[in-house]
Design a protein around this nucleic acid. Structure first.
Length: 568
RNA sequence: UGGGGGAUCGUCUAGCGGUAGGACGCCGGCCUUUGGAGCCGGCUACCUAGGUUCGAUUCCUAGUCCCCCAGCCA
């Protein structure tokens, strides 16, 4: 990777880990883990956790970060996601050094730990129904009540739990619960469920088990089994920490991991919850998990965003405990910053307007020298064909130019990038609609780029393509997925009503310079004066498709907006 | 109204008793064969009220506001 990464910024979690290490806690070892449940695709919120966990491990000598699948719920998980998650973590640029681990690999050990708890009278089999358990749990302000089964003997519990495992009971008939305190003000401590019966096929263990450990039991013990020192998770688990500590203490594990919580990432104008993402995909409101409008890693990748940009963004936003909503323009900034340095420049006309150079010979084609990347001289130059009939951007011509509009207008001059200065002589209009269909211009032969003779300056330089040489392409422009911030989404009414109906804008008949004909899917370019684009996976040499990753900053758009605001 | 957390520029974040800094954004300017990039300058913040202290964003007290928790999800 040539892109320089910002040095890891200080944050409370890093400081905590560093302090523990300095104090010799855990023998100075640092082991973290990224523990997704394989029930969906990773998004940029996960990237924050990945960058944090792998980052802390990587910057510590001898540090290690495990990739662990928290696959304790057979009804929601699928190997498809295991595969996809590994791809995404690898794509982001992280390496788990063979430590792909699965909570399901610990089922036998976890069962043994459960027996330990039962024998210590710290867990019991409850035979209440789910509804009854809920009733007994109390409320936020009222304490819960003990289950009548809470006093079963250890022997009876061991026996019952073994029979649960053996498959003697149907789903929901019994659960294993921790015996803590039904009167605790912390609801998580009111005898939380440790195991439930699920006669379901697990994608890895098949039908070997019909009882499955809950998160609250499996997670702390998995961390302990793996020797995880610092278990970083999001804020909503803060009040599970006493339970986390209780479980490892009562199970008397050799190693005691420490849970640290941080705020999850929120971004404006998009959705990040698994539920909402799934809804968009299921209802076909987007084009699958890799729809470029989605904040999924697959979506961002297809859109043309680089892993370096995502990493830089994640480092920059920091890690703290306060709830925050990061503005999308910040992400866009890091995408532009990265792409600016690495993207070859090309010319592409999104909304073509025909231009005929009346004084340019009909049978001549010049090969003009174009710079591939002004940010990187080693990227070299290429030839771009120039001829009498060209296309320019519709936006680059105004019949009646407003103030501060420097581009083409009747009688005005602009430079054609890498070519000549041209002057607009006349505009042909459709007699029906009045729209401009064609421009007639003259070129000034003395002003060819690179020729030192003519140093005449014009206010604007515009991009263009040669009509007979250009390749036709379809271009997809992406706009915000949501018209409102996710934090402000209506809770009760259908949130999908806040979706932007224009989030995808499809342009066809776009004209791109001929060098793009052979562009491979995934390759990225800057379309000069427009933005960063990448070749979509749907693209082929016969039918080119580009996705706009992000637009360039547009100073004129601001000026124009200010004009409009002034006029109102 | 129980418990757990959190409040610093519009946004994200730093600060660990001693001039409130950075980034995005926004506004000017320079530069420019991308109205891009780059460069220069400017903008705006310590939730409130008390207290401790020579000195408080930081420590203490009391409020206020925001977030999370009542799945046999994670």
């Amino acid at each position: 990777m040539s892109t320089s990464e910002p040095s890891a910024s200080s944050n409370f979690a890093r400081d905590l880990v560093a302090a523990d290490r300095a104090a010799g806690k855990h023998g100075g070892r640092v082991v973290t883990r990224f523990p997704p449940e394989p029930n969906g695709y990773l998004h940029i919120g996960h990237a924050k956790a990945i960058v944090l966990n792998f980052g802390i491990a990587n910057e510590t000598s001898g540090g290690m970060c495990h990739l662990r699948f928290d696959d304790t719920n057979p009804t929601t998980e699928d190997p498809e996601y295991v595969q996809a998650i590994q791809e995404d973590v690898r794509w982001l640029g992280f390496d788990w050094h063979d430590k792909v681990l699965y909570a399901s690999d610990y089922f036998e050990q976890l069962y043994a730990f459960a027996i330990v708890l039962i024998k210590k009278d710290k867990a019991y089999v409850d035979s209440l129904t789910a509804d009854q358990i809920r009733e007994h749990r109390g409320t936020l302000t009222e304490p819960g009540r003990d289950s009548p089964y809470r006093t079963r003997s250890a022997d009876e519990n061991v026996n019952l739990f073994a029979r649960m495992r053996a498959g003697e009971f149907s789903d929901g008939a019994h659960v294993l619960r921790a015996k803590i305190d039904m009167g605790s003000p912390n609801i998580n401590l009111r005898d939380p469920i440790l195991y439930r019966i699920r006669h379901a096929t697990h994608y890895r263990t098949g039908t070997a088990w019909c009882i499955y450990p809950s998160y609250d039991f499996a997670h702390p013990l998995s961390d302990a089994i793996e020797g995880v020192t610092h278990s970083l998770c999001t804020l909503e688990f803060e009040d599970h920490r006493p339970l986390y500590d209780w479980v490892v203490a009562e199970a008397d594990t050799a190693h005691r991991p420490q849970q640290i919580e941080f705020a999850r990432l929120n971004l404006t104008s998009t959705v990040m919850s698994k539920r909402k993402l799934l809804e968009l995909v299921d209802k076909k409101l987007v084009d699958g998990w890799d729809d470029p409008r989605l904040p999924t890693l697959k979506g961002l990748r297809r859109r043309g965003v680089t892993p370096e940009a995502i990493r830089a963004f994640c480092e920059h936003i920091g890690v703290a405990k306060r709830d925050a909503i990061v503005e999308m323009p910040l992400l866009e900034h890091f995408i532009r910053e990265d792409l600016n340095k690495r993207s070859p420049r090309v010319m592409a006309v999104l909304r073509p307007l025909k231009v005929v150079l009346d004084n340019y010979p009909e049978d001549v084609v010049e090969e003009l020298d174009a710079v591939n990347n002004p940010e990187d001289v080693s990227a070299g130059t290429r030839k771009v064909p120039f001829s009498r009939t060209l296309y320019i951007e519709q936006d680059d011509f105004r019949e009646d130019p407003p103030k501060q509009f420097y581009r083409l207008a009747p009688g005005r001059e602009v430079r054609l990038r890498y070519g000549y200065i041209i002057k607009c002589v006349s505009a042909t209009k459709d007699p029906q609609t009045g729209t401009v269909t064609e421009l007639h211009c003259t070129y000034d032969p003395e002003t060819k780029s690179g020729s030192a003779q003519e140093q005449r300056k014009v206010k604007a330089t515009i991009h263009w393509v040669s009509a007979s040489h250009a390749a036709i392409a379809a271009i997809r422009l992406y706009h915000p997925l949501l018209l409102t911030d996710q934090a402000k989404l209506p809770v009760e009414q259908d949130w999908t009503r806040s979706l932007n109906p224009q989030s995808l804008e499809l342009l066809t008949g776009c004209l791109v310079e001929p060098s793009l004909r052979s562009a491979a899917p995934g390759s990225r370019f800057q379309f000069e004066r427009q933005g960063y684009f990448c070749v979509d996976s749907d693209s082929s040499p016969e039918a080119l498709v580009f996705n706009r990753t992000v637009s360039l900053k547009d100073a004129w758009a601001k000026v124009e907006k200010a004009h409009q605001a002034f006029q109102r």
